[in-house]
Design a protein around this nucleic acid. Structure first.
Lengths: 218, 218, 218, 218
DNA sequence: CGATAAGCGAGACGGTACGTCAGGTCTTGGA
DNA sequence: TCCAAGACCTGACGTACCGTCTCGCTTATCG
């Protein structure tokens, strides 16, 4: 969640959408649409962001949007993915993000969760990701895309780190890492998404401690 | 989460919305609106449910909706709360739900989570609660109402049960129950909401075990 | 053609178009739409007159136009009929137009044709009637309405006058007046509509003379 | 009107439209465009005939149309002229049409008008000529072209025949043939164009009789 | 007990955005 | 260099709902 990766998507050049000829596609327009979509979601919120508004702001015909995407949610999803890619490239980061492995699983997870918190409240990211999450709840197709392209890569890193911890004897070997990671990731996600309670570093640290050592007395 | 209660709301007779005279309110219309709203959300989905559609289906003027509610989300929220109340009354349940206390915290939590799973996939409840959750992500005011009226009461029961477990020495005394419950509630919620993975009894049982005993070797 | 009458249409109060409730209709909007339509056709021409433009100029929602008319041609037709009615009322003319009967059929027809010429080149009338005529050629349904509501009443007056002339022995009794009137009306109409040649009083006088006395030597 | 001639147009090889090099023009495309335009006007009507539709049907790029014509009306006008030429050539008719001169002006005119009626209701000709006439009413530039290229040549033949009749003493010498011909041509044109009344041989015969001998008693 | 004022059903209204169609311009790649 | 193909910006289409507003019509106190 704290991590956005180059993500599988970007390298199948043609025909993600069936009909038009992608080789003739205007990169200028595409980028302008991404920028406009992200800006509008940030400024007026997702529900008041309209395709017409995006087109106008991007200086683009509506048809150019409809040609390549089928809904504002799809536009925003791709815009957000693109934003992630650009953020990665801007840092000159050749390695895709990974969770550090200092040998101390508790410390590493706490560090990652703190970074995740920072990202969740980064104004550039908050509005779009909240909007996409919301849309995904109700629109299953988009929800799956959202999960696969945005969440999954990041979750996989947690799985990897937990497996390493198992190898190092810091996590019990019979634990399923896919489930384990949810103990600390999901609570954070829910608090942030649903405003159920404030999110602080102390909170995420506590989550990691509880998850590692359990609620029951030892 | 598995529980829906009478919930604070129902007994302040006048002026939830400022203007009209609630004593003259037509209960026939109110109920018809609730029914129509829930039916439409179930049949065509939340985004295609419209105020006009609800009014038409309920045989009601649009103004009658706008007089008492300010958005389709509010209508649906109240309709859903009403649905919960009616479900409770139908069972002749005078006591509000509570989590059983057999003395075995693990068993009790597993039972409650299994009941929660059943409710989440009950067709009457799924569409509206998913819709309300989605709307709540993006509309903070509604989100808070949603949390306070629907989630909070149920979460409080978990808190109570965890405190009892602490008194019984089954949960460490320094644990914060508000955070603790998230270890198993949030993962379930997220899997369900975001379709990230299937939800089974085995899964919720595992969550309880992991949460109680931790990931680290003991 | 020189004459616009109260015309049968205006006095069936309800349901010319099936669906909406005509009693609730906004007369303010209706008049604003008529004004806007006529103004736009005069200013930018019929093809560049759009429903959207009419709505904007009239300060009216598009739906208010689509509720009551099915095309811009219909709007313009009714607007034009209304214009005619108002022109008649403005003159305080209680009698519907009629062709004068001085006893001299030649003089009377020449007078009427001169008046017709004046009207054809009246800027308020020219653009809309030309546009409606054009639309009527290609859209048969509208064409029939146009003929029935605008042309027919005026043509009937010519028929009446010709019958009077037959009674007075100025026109041969076996002549069919419906056909006879076309000898001078149609040439005028065609010159005007198709810009085939200029139209002058001398021309219309000549038409009447040729029609009355024939081309062949007597 | 009953006659379509080789007409001035066809033999100025270059630069009717300024820009492109007409010598390199693809005759295949040109013919395909004509065919498509006429077919579409016949099948779906003039208003629903679009440049895109013509291009698609002709298997031609839109630019190929815009390169050589400035509007669908122009395309159709040329297509229609071409159709006339081809019809003439198909009959192996080296002489341009002329009105017969049997010495009996009444009979000759009646014959020509009957032929005109036949042509007006020929399905190949009706839709395009009606469409062009309509467009000409509103678009003065095109209207003049339409008149000059299509109507004028045919009208001139009537003028010639009337002059011959004058020489033969069958038409009064002081009659202006340009005006005279309108007495029978315009009524026919108007009935056909505006669907004001059915057109039959009996009707056109009557027109000729009325025009020649006048309405007044002799 | 009759007046009067509220809620109500209906739905017209001024708007905004939808998703589509076509116009006319421009670019690309193949002949 | 012309042409087919079609992406692009533009602008209008006709539709769906929004939230507001008026209409009569119950209906239920209160003067």
């Amino acid at each position: 969640m704290a991590t956005i990766r180059k993500s599988a998507r970007s390298t199948n050049p043609a025909a993600e959408r069936p009909h038009p000829d992608a080789t003739r596609r205007s990169q200028r327009s595409r980028q302008a649409i991404y920028d406009a979509a992200l800006a509008l979601v940030g400024e007026v919120g997702y529900p008041k962001t309209t395709i017409e508004g995006i087109a106008a702001r991007a200086g683009v015909g509506k048809q150019t949007i409809y040609r390549w995407w089928s809904s504002k949610a799809e536009v925003l999803l791709e815009a957000f993915l693109d934003l992630g890619e650009q953020a990665v490239q801007a840092q000159g980061q050749e390695e895709p993000y990974a969770i550090p492995d200092t040998g101390d699983i508790a410390a590493d997870l706490k560090a990652v969760l703190r970074a995740t918190v920072d990202q969740l409240y980064d104004p550039k990211f908050e509005a779009p990701s909240r909007a996409l999450a919301a849309e995904g709840l109700v629109n299953e197709q988009l929800g799956r895309e959202f999960v696969a392209k945005l969440l999954e890569p990041s979750l996989q890193l947690h799985v990897d780190r937990l497996r390493a911890a198992q190898a190092a004897g810091q996590v019990r070997p019979e634990i399923d890492p896919r489930i384990a990671l949810e103990l600390f990731v999901s609570p954070l996600a829910q608090r942030w998404l649903q405003h159920t309670a404030p999110v602080s570093y102390a909170y995420t640290d506590t989550l990691v401690d509880y998850a590692l050592h359990g609620l029951a007395p030892r």
